[in-house]
């Protein structure tokens, strides 16, 4: 193991231990028994097929979004706009699916995925273009784009596409829904886990190859590491910024496949519930490595679902606190571990 990966593993472990400690203290403060809480989480999340299924179902969108974000983050592009991008993509997926209802499912999926990808990608392209052309910080422009996109969807939605007195689009039809995992494996009975999870794993594998095994990925990381130097070795930095933003944002649209084709059958305003921001934490925890993202997504999903399991003892919102603590503790333990290794000349 190189010193780099040693440092990374150490800081991830430290942050998880720290978060676990704080959570335990919190449970004690409320006057509940931590052992009881943890065994409840364990029993509900890991021992029943339903629990495992729900956890993987909740992990699916996180894997998609965090993988998309990882592409941007590797190029040192702070894409805070996943929330807007994924909503634009999902909205378009729902609208497209209704238009092409008569096509066979597989064709429909492909067309919808492409349409959603393009819509989310275009939303992501706006901050990229303003950055390349005018030097506008992508942080501010992606934050602003989130609000703009949601307002536009809200407007188009409420006035044109919504089913009366709801905030959702028309259903894409029951026979358009993807197969549930429980159809094949009765073990997952009742959970919403569907084929999208496999798609998420495939996307993670593809993004891994893209980042670490291709010339594109090499250039991407070069830009992220040192923009000026990579310009000198002939990397077209502007092109890299545009492509990584388009592809990264595009991938976030795939959550729409999970939600619309795999679960509800329609797009609903507010379905994303700030998952675009949670995914930033997921990607960070995994050091923007797509394989690690699979695990950190499952961890965050398990926390999310575990919250429901312990809701009778402590408010399930405690898991939101835990997720926040994880991101801040990973940031600080990273910084501390890195400087410790550097001081000793190890990295």
């Amino acid at each position: 193991m190189s010193h780099h990966s040693k440092a990374n593993t150490l800081s991830v472990l430290l942050s998880l231990i720290f978060t676990f400690m704080i959570l335990t203290i919190l449970i004690l403060l409320i006057g509940k028994d931590p052992v009881e809480v943890y065994s409840l989480i364990y029993n509900d999340v890991f021992t029943s097929g339903y629990g495992i299924g729900q956890t993987l179902f909740k992990a699916t969108p996180l894997i998609f979004i965090a993988c998309g974000l990882a592409i941007c983050f590797h190029a040192s592009l702070f894409n805070i706009g996943a929330e807007g991008q994924l909503n634009a993509g999902s909205f378009v997926i729902a609208l497209t699916a209704v238009q092409i209802e008569s096509l066979p499912l597989i064709l429909k999926l492909l067309i919808c995925a492409c349409a959603g990808f393009a819509a989310a990608g275009l939303v992501g392209l706006i901050p990229a273009v303003t950055k390349v052309k005018k030097g506008v910080s992508e942080v501010i422009s992606t934050i602003m784009m989130n609000f703009v996109v949601l307002a536009v969807i809200n407007y188009r939605m409420v006035d044109f596409f919504a089913v009366k007195s709801t905030l959702r689009t028309v259903s894409i039809g029951d026979d358009s829904l993807l197969g549930k995992a429980s159809d094949l494996f009765p073990f997952f009975e009742g959970s919403s886990l569907n084929v999208s999870f496999i798609a998420a794993l495939v996307v993670a594998a593809l993004v891994y190859i893209l980042i670490y095994k291709t010339t594109f990925g090499y250039k991407l990381r070069a830009v992220g590491f040192n923009e000026t130097a990579s310009r000198y070795i002939g990397v077209k930095v502007n092109k890299m910024i545009l492509t990584s933003f388009f592809v990264g944002a595009g991938i976030t649209a795939l959550v729409g496949i999970n939600y619309i084709f795999g679960y509800k059958g329609y797009y609903e305003l507010g379905f994303s519930n700030n998952i675009g921001f949670t995914a930033i934490a997921v990607s960070l925890l995994a050091k923007n490595n797509p394989v690690g993202i699979i695990f950190s997504s499952i961890l965050f999903a398990a926390l999310d679902y575990g919250g429901l399991a312990v809701n009778q003892l402590i408010p399930k919102e405690v898991m939101l606190v835990v997720q926040g603590l994880i991101i801040l503790s990973i940031l600080s333990s990273d910084s501390i571990v890195q400087s410790y290794f550097k001081k000793r000349g190890l990295i």
């Binding site: 700030n274 949670t278 934490a281 939101l320 606190v321 835990v322 997720q323 926040g324 991101i327 801040l328």
Partner: peptide, 8 residues
């Protein structure tokens, strides 16, 4: 991170 933690 702060925004997420505070919301939580």
């Amino acid at each position: 991170g702060f925004n997420l933690l505070i919301a939580g």
